[in-house]
Amino acid sequence: MSPLNTSCHDTAAGPVLRVTGDLDYEHAPALRRRVEELILVPGQCLVIDLSGLDFCDSSGITALLAALRHAQAKGADLALAAVPANILRIFSVVGLDRVFTLQA
């Protein structure tokens, strides 16, 4: 297992949060806190870049769902970028590929 790291940079469309490591029971709460700290204004789109994600379990999915709710509550959108194939497979199993906006 690898620890979870997040880094953030702002673009014109909104913040981009890059997540690397494992999004599991132990580390998912860190992502939830990190997202809640983000300043979002209506109309922005928060992009969570998952290209460096090694593992995602149900806790990780919960954290991503919480991020979606957080963005929606602020009047913003959320998109997941560069979802790794193995995680995309899980997403399709659990139907999340139709809940999240996915970017290549």
Binding site: I61, S92, V93, V94, G95, L96, R98, V99
Partner: peptide, 25 residues
Amino acid sequence: GGHPPALVLRADGRAEFLATPGGLL
């Protein structure tokens, strides 16, 4: 609902997933 597909092991030696795509969590 968001669950991996069930699997059926047939009497004739085949195995097949009982696909349920698109069911959400």
